[in-house]
Every structure is written in structure tokens, then in C-alpha cells.
Amino acid sequence: MYSTTDENGIINNFPKEPKMYLAEKPSSAQKRNYALQGIAAGLLLTAVVWISLAVS
């Protein structure tokens, strides 16, 4: 851990920074899975809205 001390004697600690890396593009299978998850989320949201309207 990296520490500094100012003119009043107050210590300030800094954490170690993590290594940076670039993200990779999703594969076609991952893209398909994301699309399916989006469709499932949309259907779930639609069902919740219709159920709440039917109950009220």
C-alpha cells in the first residue's frame, strides 16, 4: 500500500491499482445468449405488468 504524509503529519493511504486489460468482443454464441436473455426479460416484464393490471 502506498502512503503519503502531508505537512500536518496526516497519513493518506492509497490502494494498489489493478492491472488494466482490454475487453474482448463477444462471440456469436454469447450475442445469441444475450438476445435470448433480453427476450426472456421482456416477456417476464410484460407478464408482470399484465398480472398487476388484472389484479388491480
Rank of each mutant, 00 (worst) to 15 (best):
I51S: 10
Y21D: 07
T4M: 15
G42L: 05
N33C: 08
Y2K: 14
N8V: 03
T46S: 13
L44I: 11
K16P: 00
G9K: 02
I11K: 12
S3W: 12
K25Q: 04
N12W: 07
E17H: 05
A29G: 03
A47W: 09
G9S: 07
S3C: 09
E17K: 12
T4R: 15
E7N: 08
L44M: 10
Y2C: 01
P18G: 02
I39S: 04
S28T: 14
Y34S: 14
Y34G: 11
M1Q: 09
T5I: 13
T5F: 05
Q30S: 14
R32D: 14
L43W: 04
P18H: 02
W50Q: 09
S56A: 06
Q30E: 15
P15M: 04
D6G: 08
I10L: 02
G42P: 00
S28N: 14
E17D: 05
Q37D: 11
E7L: 11
L44K: 03
V48F: 12
E7W: 04
L36F: 08
T46V: 08
A47P: 04
N12L: 10
L22S: 06
M20S: 12
G9M: 06
Q37H: 11
I51F: 14
E24F: 07
A23Y: 00
M20P: 10
N13H: 14
N13V: 11
G9V: 01
S52C: 12
S52P: 00
N13S: 10
K19I: 07
P18W: 06
Y2H: 15
G38N: 10
L22F: 06
Q30R: 12
R32K: 13
Y34Q: 14
P26E: 02
S27A: 04
E7C: 07
K31L: 05
Q37V: 00
L43R: 00
Q37I: 00
M20L: 14
Y21C: 05
V55E: 13
N33L: 15
S52D: 08
Y21S: 15
S27I: 03
K25E: 12
M20W: 09
E17P: 00
L36W: 12
T5R: 12
S56Y: 02
N8F: 06
F14C: 09
K16A: 09
N12K: 11
L53V: 12
I10R: 05
L36C: 08
L44R: 04
A35R: 14
I51T: 09
N8Q: 12
T4I: 13
A41E: 03
A40M: 10
T46F: 11
Y2E: 14
G9N: 02
L44E: 00
A40W: 01
D6H: 08
A40K: 09
I39E: 00
K16T: 14
S27R: 03
L36H: 08
S27C: 02
M1T: 11
K25N: 09
I11L: 08
E7I: 08
G38H: 04
I11Y: 01
W50T: 12
Q30W: 05
Q37T: 00
S56C: 01
I39N: 01
E17A: 12
T46A: 15
N33D: 15
N12P: 00
K25V: 04
N13C: 07
L53I: 13
A23H: 02
N8K: 12
P26V: 03
L45M: 12
N8I: 01
I11A: 09
S52Q: 13
A41N: 06
